[in-house]
Structures are given as structure tokens and as C-alpha cells.
């Protein structure tokens, strides 16, 4: 977050908010919903994000990546406010996830990736893909969402998540292995060949 010299006047603030921030409102809401799995929480999270964005608008530098800036606010709000309240057992701390996997040399998910055919994935329904994604720990789900759904590059994800690019890369690699396993397990349970 760069700029701190001069503040924007009211017209500029409204202009930035309306034209640079609000264009990402749907993407922000869908990100919030995929994090919380709950419509009301997603709405609260979106509202909080927008309120913070307007309040701290002077720290946004015009012409820079508004979408990444907003996603970062949303992700921080989620971690600080929502995740603490949530009782969802699928939610693990970022640090825990990193420690858990690195202490095992990352072998867990590379040992025996079950076979999954691309044709099977092509035939899957949206609900089936959604279930697989939702059953992942939020930290892994997040990198998949940011990269595959929102099209952020690694350097942007690094800023949004406050982690080094190398960690983005390794977390994403693990997340993809886990997702593949979930899809394969799901396909097997449904008797897909």
C-alpha cells in the first residue's frame, strides 16, 4: 500500500470507489462466499471490505491494481474477524498448514495420486466440483480461487496473502494435488471410470 502524501478530495474518493472498486463487487462477493460458505457472512464480509476500502482509500494509489488491493482487504478481514468466530472444523491456520506439510516433506499428497481422467472431470457437474473445492482447508481453497477463478498472478497472490512467492508456488502445488485427490475420490465413489 503506497501513497500517503496527499489525500484525495471527496469527488476523487467517490470516483475511485464507484469506478475502480465497485467494478469488482461480484468477484469480491463470490470470493467471500467461497471462504465463508454462508450467505450472511459473505454479505457482512463484503460490506466490511467496502467500508474499509472507502475509509482507507488514501492508501490506494490510483492506477494500481484495485482488484488485488480489495482482495487483500477482504482476506485480512476474513482472517481477523470471521475466521476467529467461525466454528468450522475445516478451517486451519495458515501457519499450521505450512508446518504440517513441510514437517512431512510434502509426501502426504505426492505418494499415491489416484488416477483421474480428464474426460471424467469434463463430465462432472458444477456441484461436484464445488463440493470438492469446499471440502478443502480454506488456505488451500484460497490459492486455487485466487489463481484459477480470479486469474491473479503469483506476485499478486503474494501481496494479497502476505506470503513470499515461493510459498504461493508451493501452496498452490499442494492445493492442486489435494483437489485432484478429492476429485478422484469423488469420481471413484460415484463409480465414474
Amino acid at each position: 500500500m503506497g501513497k500517503s502524501k496527499v489525500g484525495y478530495n471527496d469527488i476523487e474518493k467517490n470516483d475511485i470507489f464507484d469506478n475502480e472498486f465497485m467494478t469488482h463487487i461480484d468477484a469480491l462477493y463470490n470470493f467471500a462466499y467461497k471462504l465463508t460458505h454462508n450467505e450472511d457472512e459473505a454479505k457482512d464480509l463484503l460490506q466490511d471490505t467496502c467500508m474499509k476500502a472507502f475509509r482507507f482509500i488514501n492508501s490506494f494509489e490510483r492506477g494500481t491494481n484495485a482488484k488485488a488491493w480489495l482482495f487483500r482487504i477482504l482476506k485480512n478481514s476474513f482472517i481477523n474477524d470471521y475466521r476467529k468466530k467461525s466454528k468450522n472444523p475445516g478451517m486451519v491456520d495458515y501457519q499450521e498448514v505450512e508446518t504440517y506439510y513441510s514437517s512431512d516433506g510434502g509426501e502426504i499428497e505426492t505418494q499415491s495420486t489416484p488416477d483421474l481422467r480428464s474426460e471424467t472431470v469434463k463430465g462432472m457437474l458444477g456441484d461436484e466440483i464445488t463440493n470438492a473445492l469446499n471440502s478443502m482447508a480454506v488456505d488451500f481453497r484460497t490459492v486455487i480461487i485466487l489463481c484459477d477463478l480470479e486469474g491473479f498472478k503469483y506476485d499478486e497472490m503474494s501481496k494479497i496473502l502476505d506470503i513470499p512467492i515461493g510459498t504461493v508456488r508451493s501452496r498452490l502445488h499442494r492445493a492442486r494435488n489435494i483437489l485432484k485427490e478429492k476429485l478422484a475420490a469423488y469420481a471413484a465413489s460415484m463409480g465414474y471410470k
Binding site: 462477493y29 458444477g126 477463478l149
Partner: peptide, 24 residues
């Protein structure tokens, strides 16, 4: 599959108006 098969929800105009009002 991730890009094309997941549902994307559109935020309603009413909620956008509410957000605008509260934020500003």
C-alpha cells in the same frame, strides 16, 4: 471446470446501494 462450472453470484442492485450508502 473450475472456471466454467462454478456458480457466480451477482450482487443485487439493492445491496450495492446499501453498501454505497454505508461505506460513504
Amino acid at each position: 471446470a473450475l472456471k466454467n462450472k462454478l456458480i457466480n453470484i451477482k450482487v443485487s442492485d439493492a445491496f450495492i446501494a446499501e453498501i454505497n450508502r454505508k461505506a460513504k
